[in-house]
Design a protein around this nucleic acid. Sequence first.
DNA 1: CTGAAAGCGCTTACAG
DNA 2: CTGAAAGCGCTTACAG
Lengths: 355, 355
Amino acid sequence: MRTRLKDVAERVQLSPALVSGVLNGRANVWASEDTRARVLEAARELNYHPSTAAKALSNGRTNTVALVYRRLSGTAYRLAYTGLVDAFSEQLQARGYDLMVSNFATEEEVLAQIRRMANAHACDAMILWGREADTEPQGELLDSLNIPFLVKGRHEKKHPEWRQIDFDHEGMMRQAVEQVVSLGHRRIAYLGFPLEEAFVRALRRGYVEAHERLLGFAPDVQYMDSSEDDLEGNSQCVEQWLSLPEDQRPTAFVIGSGNYAWHALEASLARRGHALSQQPGGYSAAGIASYYFTLSFGEAMAYQGIEIDNLAQQASPGLLDAILCGHEEHRIVRFLPSLTPAPTLGLNAGPGGQA
Amino acid sequence: MRTRLKDVAERVQLSPALVSGVLNGRANVWASEDTRARVLEAARELNYHPSTAAKALSNGRTNTVALVYRRLSGTAYRLAYTGLVDAFSEQLQARGYDLMVSNFATEEEVLAQIRRMANAHACDAMILWGREADTEPQGELLDSLNIPFLVKGRHEKKHPEWRQIDFDHEGMMRQAVEQVVSLGHRRIAYLGFPLEEAFVRALRRGYVEAHERLLGFAPDVQYMDSSEDDLEGNSQCVEQWLSLPEDQRPTAFVIGSGNYAWHALEASLARRGHALSQQPGGYSAAGIASYYFTLSFGEAMAYQGIEIDNLAQQASPGLLDAILCGHEEHRIVRFLPSLTPAPTLGLNAGPGGQA
DNA sequence: CTGAAAGCGCTTACAG
DNA sequence: CTGAAAGCGCTTACAG
């Protein structure tokens, strides 16, 4: 049989009420130091852990936070969630909270679950993760249900009062532009994803703004292209650029998309006997890549996918405490990771590498 | 204010007890079809969802399963957990259960959490994930606490009665050997991880057994090597093999480790003007790789990291129902994924590719 | 077939 | 400073 509060109260010859007060460190409960020690000792001896259900029912707090999201398909998205649960679990445990995870195939199911958990009082707060198109209705529902929440994404325009976290996408592309400009490049192409989501637009905006600020002029539209994360689409973009006359050809590439942009870039350069380089005078690249990323030939600076963990970890000091305790500071957190040298196989891309 | 059972009972002019019985579809409760319909209708109208805490406290079931593990570091391990939570959440939701996730830095913390959750009755069952060295003490603790659980790993020797799931590592390497033997290869090298864990030994055992069975003789020890998942270590192994006289040189490679084994293999072959091929007479390879995996030059058959999701999904028909309902069948599940063509950039690895 | 009552294990005012 | 009592919102025998 499990140990109950009554058991430890009997053991120390005190009322359950007092024992409860001591165990929860309640301020308005008086007990001598000796009594406190005896209570703690007895609880430990009997391996007492209060029933979560009873506790939640009586004091109205579940000490549980729910992470809710719509499942996304595709490797890029799967990788973007890697480490997320680990980071939140760690931070919540440290605050005495448990993490519940609920994900569903459709947005309707997610909204139904939010409604259920709110009415069933299954958690004290929620964390929403995913695309803005999904999380916005979810957040609005939580608002109406009066449940505190934290949301991943860029909701600053429509919901500046929401507690939200995301990468500083503009800053990331700014740093990438700074990097290649510092190597002397002036014709800098941008390869991104198709412009469907907020972060994709933010990435491109970062490139454009940094380009204007650092070089003093807007990038030529022919230097901005996009593709899904596949080899064919990215190869087309890159081939077009590399086929330009030498005095128009871009010499640097800012990557705002996935691994296949890098693969395509390296492959096209290799066919021409070139490799990415960090030396002035060569072809250079900087930008984002997915979790598992290794260049074949050259060298470049990249934000590694590993940074996604940092994003969840950034939520800890401010946002998590905010939704748990109702603080008002730290509503919007934007995280700017560092550019680091990408791992490379360092293969030779001589002219014989021609496909 | 949240809707309570009492509210819907009042709405339909019935006792809470009857409404509870109808809502839970209890068998020994009688109510006319009309009454049932009115109750359901009222519950829906009032958006009634029973308090999880009250329900758990009164009927002793939490409808929650906890996934517990020690956090592991390293990309390979992070990737191995990708999709795990998604798969379990999906399967549990379908059965009316919520998923709780608790992970910790140390084994001591994991064991303490298991003890706490068991005594606090925070869940009905647990899922243990991780290395056998961690999960074995965890499982033994759960045994002693009488909590049903499901464990990932190979515990068939010491705990054949445990509900457990893992890949069929021997079968995977058997299929890889079959693949290259079918292409006519007879000198088949094996590149694995250092022999520290059960699955690493199982992979190698699969290679050895299939080799003996299919070729009629045991593999030469010089054809079996291992390395951590880095470029240097794997390159050393591969270079040694490729430097052998032609009549001793292996022509096929079974990979029981990570992406850098493939990268090293491709790089070493490329320096000699070769690429992996599925044609008889060339160099061939087959085996495991991590989640995000793209060959640079050649073609090969691989188990993609994506398969880890299937592992969690395999737990659904048998094991999950077993721990939730106490069925006795399906104690040990071993999952054998399919070898598929690896994605490749298809770059030319001509002699000019020499580094 | 139906409803009143006890109980799950805590917490929290509220009297002594 | 301390303890008896009510209550959180359900479920489940158990009488009518």
